[in-house]
């Protein structure tokens, strides 16, 4: 990979910021400060980072229930994200969505989604809009291994192939659909094998290698921008944390998780950058400190923010917001 130090450190910084955000979210949740439940992106940061480094602000993504990392990599404001996790009025969704429904339409995030595969039909529609408007935007639809067993996945791949839409399907195969292992619930060895059925390119890559993600997505995005249609990319990773914070994880042993910690993407990329002479210890410390500071500021902002007025629950159903909520 022949890239500038600035670019490579940028990838590293995004991963570190994402990790810092989710580590703090985990801590706050365990302290009982966050309502609801949250799903952490820890260990999967290379995917969002490598994908988003190929996208413009006006490109779209659809995210998942495990979407904090997508938001950060697409350029979201950590303060508004954290405030949403707290259920505060200053959050992205004014406290109506929470962790699983964060969206920022101004940067092309068409929503995290609480429904497995829920974003794929939405991404297909954004792809249709781009084709009709004749722009060169693209859409990236993130989804998990479990989503590839839903009808929506198959409908969306067929649809986007038929109309040659600029949609890149990025499968984050973290080996688990909630508590179920992918190999016990899925008919194919590689989820990318399913691309064959839809006459589109399918490729499996190491999702913990940010360079591999970046390079693979780069060519898929180029194809899509030039009218070449969709691609299915399976980025294999591992969900180091439980399905949600507090998951007793009875379905796997500690040893397995320890093994995968050794392959987590940030440490790997850090080592590579050092070997390449692209990252000094001091730079590394600075990046980590800055990320932690940014997260602390987001926490402070959230804790200082008020909860929404209860009556505001009756707003936001329709644009014409008069008299529908009652």
């Amino acid at each position: 990979m022949d890239y500038s130090k600035e670019f490579l450190q940028g990838l590293y910084r995004t991963m570190v910021r994402s990790r810092a955000f989710d580590s703090k979210a985990e801590e706050l949740f365990l302290e009982g400060k966050l309502p609801g439940f949250i799903h952490l992106y820890i260990g999967e940061e290379a995917i969002a980072t490598g994908v988003m480094a190929n996208l413009r602000k006006d490109d779209y993504i659809t995210s998942t229930h495990r979407g904090h990392g997508h938001m950060i990599a697409k350029g979201a404001d950590m303060k508004k994200m954290m405030a949403e996790l707290y259920g505060k009025i200053t959050g992205y969704c004014r406290g109506k969505g929470g962790s699983m429904h964060i969206a920022d339409l101004s940067i092309g995030v068409l929503g995290a989604n609480g429904e497995v595969a829920g974003g794929l039909p939405i991404a297909s529609g954004a792809g249709m809009a781009i084709k009709l408007k004749k722009t060169d935007q693209v859409v990236v639809a993130f989804f998990g291994d479990g989503a590839s067993n839903r009808g929506a996945f198959h409908e969306a791949l067929n649809w986007c192939s038929v109309y040659k839409l600029p949609v890149i399907f990025v499968n984050e195969n973290n080996q688990f659909a909630s508590t179920e292992r992918v190999q016990e619930t899925t008919s194919v060895q590689n989820i990318s094998d399913r691309a064959v059925s839809y006459s589109i390119p399918g490729v499996t890559i190491d999702g913990n290698d940010v360079s591999a993600v970046y390079e693979t997505v780069k060519s898929a995005v180029e194809r899509a921008r030039n009218g070449g249609g969709p691609t299915l990319i399976e980025a294999k990773t591992y969900r180091i944390k439980g399905h949600f914070v507090g998951d007793p994880t009875l379905y796997r042993g500690k040893k397995e998780v320890q093994e995968y910690w050794k392959r987590e993407p940030i440490g790997r990329f850090e080592k590579k950058l050092k070997e390449m002479g692209m990252l000094t210890d001091k730079e590394k410390e600075n990046i980590k400190n800055e990320a932690e500071k940014e997260v602390e500021e987001a926490v402070k902002f959230s804790e200082d923010s008020p909860f929404p007025e209860p009556v505001s629950a009756l707003q936001d159903l329709f644009v014409d917001d008069t008299g529908y909520g009652y």
């Binding site: 779209y60 068409l110 529609g125 954004a126 409908e155 038929v162």
Partner: peptide, 19 residues
């Protein structure tokens, strides 16, 4: 195609993307 989930879900995506 006969793909109702995408027929409806894509309407949402297309609307979010300005159509």
């Amino acid at each position: 195609p006969i793909s109702e989930e995408v027929i409806f879900g894509s309407a949402l995506g297309a609307a979010l993307a300005g159509m």
